[in-house]
Write a protein that binds this DNA or RNA. Sequence first.
DNA 1: GACTAAAAGTTAGCAGTGCTTACTCTTGAA
DNA 2: TTCAAGAGTAAGCACTGCTAACTTTTAGTC
Lengths: 202, 202
Amino acid sequence: MEQGAKTSPRAQYHHGDLRAHLIETVRVLVEEKGADGFSISEAARRAGVSSAAPYKHFHDRKEIVREVALAGIDRMRDQMDDAAQSAQGDRLAPISALGLCYAHFARTEPGVFRLMFGLTKGHDEDPEMQEHGEACFDVVKREVRKVMPEGTGEDEIERRGYMLHMFVHGHAFLEIDGKHDLELGPAEEAMLMYDIARRIMS
Amino acid sequence: MEQGAKTSPRAQYHHGDLRAHLIETVRVLVEEKGADGFSISEAARRAGVSSAAPYKHFHDRKEIVREVALAGIDRMRDQMDDAAQSAQGDRLAPISALGLCYAHFARTEPGVFRLMFGLTKGHDEDPEMQEHGEACFDVVKREVRKVMPEGTGEDEIERRGYMLHMFVHGHAFLEIDGKHDLELGPAEEAMLMYDIARRIMS
DNA sequence: GACTAAAAGTTAGCAGTGCTTACTCTTGAA
DNA sequence: TTCAAGAGTAAGCACTGCTAACTTTTAGTC
């Protein structure tokens, strides 16, 4: 199982693995100041290298940000997978767990979450980006399939999955952008999610 | 009925109403290049003034952008009001018309739409911004109230309204950010909206 | 009309940005 | 030991947001 590229072979260069270090630094900066509130110079400064150093590892600013977004998608996918698989309750429990997980991720990492969805222009045409996004949606479809009657067409699965996604995506953004004053507690949010799941899946 | 401020008294200055001219120029730029893809210098250049001129009318970049966003909210509110009031069909028609209108606005002015919702940090604490946003949501609540049984509590109205908002908001963003491959035609979108309205309002 | 204060524009400049170029140092392998 | 490639540097370009100091235009008064 070989790793992607440019990892382990040499354990330490001049500054260790600057590439990975920068991605993590940018991730933190994105949370602190937002995607267009930080500068590569700043990230370089924090990493203790010159402002030109990042360009030895990334083609341009967009590429670093993209890497942070991609990692975010994967992180969310894993969390969603976990949430669905360890959900307890009735047959709709995994569905509402997925929703809660989605909202939770948005709340925990709003900067990266915004990055993952559209804020960065050009990402919509990035095939790798879309691929990882679809892997995420596959988890949703898998759970929808379990709930729907046997033999339900793939179109219908997709349609229900998309409805769920619309819902929870809107909720997540409205929440992190402070666009409503509902102020749901955890229990209320869980109830809302279950209510939604019921309405969509019935 | 006096007008807000700095309007009509003098009809023409050096360049006419540069303030309004700049807001419109920025609106166009936001659509062309995205909210963080344009510069004030560029707007000034297009308006034919020096790069320092805008700062005679706006405190800083944020303030211009805010003005564009505010105008966008008002524009959407008007469109929603129209859409709801001229909707034809059964009792749910105004609800699904509102959803279609929301999605249509997002598609027509994605740049401004993104501006209106969170992309610009600090807007969530802007009281005027929130006020205009609530005026928008009032239209939704008004239509929800018409559909719900007489005597329904305000909490329930708000809850249903919020569910609708979640839905359509998620749909709008997923669409303009190209995060799904569903490719709905107008008729299919209308059906989807109606389906949603039914599921939420029942 | 001449005078004047303020409004609305100008140029020049600062610090900071993304990114490139040309250089130096470090490293692993021949 | 040599040496090309990898990983860093400093210097610099064009651009940005914004400020300071200035000039011009305007509206209102005598």
